[in-house]
C-alpha cells in the first residue's frame, strides 16, 4: 500500500502511522449536548465503501493527513494535509 503525501510524494505504508477515523477533525461546539460528545468520542461507522481516516507521516514530513479511501476496492481517493497548506517551499 502507498499513500501519496501532498508534500513528500508517493510513499510506502511503513512510513505512516494510522490514527483512526477523521471524525476527530469535526469537534462538537462548546454548547453541544452530551449525546454529540458521546458520538464524537465513542461511536464510529464501519462502512463498506468510502471512508476517511487520519494518518501521520511519521517517517517523513511529520504532517497529519486526511485520507479518503474505499474499504471495498482499497482505492485511495484523496490525501490532504490537515491544518492548512505548508508555508514552506520558497513561498512566503
Amino acid at each position: 500500500m502507498r499513500l501519496t503525501c501532498p508534500l513528500c510524494g508517493p510513499r510506502d505504508r511503513r512510513e505512516f502511522y494510522y490514527s483512526g477515523a477523521a471524525v476527530a477533525l469535526d469537534r462538537p461546539g462548546a454548547e453541544a449536548p452530551p449525546e454529540a460528545w458521546d458520538d464524537h468520542l465513542h461511536n464510529r461507522d464501519n462502512p463498506a465503501g468510502v471512508t476517511q481516516d487520519l494518518w501521520y507521516h511519521e517517517q517523513g514530513c511529520c504532517s497529519w493527513l486526511k485520507v479518503t479511501r474505499n474499504t471495498v476496492t482499497h482505492e485511495i481517493l484523496a490525501v490532504e494535509t490537515v491544518g492548512g497548506d505548508s508555508t514552506a517551499g520558497g513561498v512566503a
Partner: peptide
C-alpha cells in the same frame, strides 16, 4: 522552522532559497 509566511525572509537572511519539499 520559519514562522508562518516567513520562509522567503529566512532564505534571504541565509543567502539561500528556502527549499521546496524533497
Amino acid at each position: 522552522a520559519p514562522f508562518p509566511g516567513q520562509s522567503a525572509a529566512v532564505g534571504t537572511a541565509l543567502g539561500l532559497t528556502f527549499p521546496a519539499p524533497n
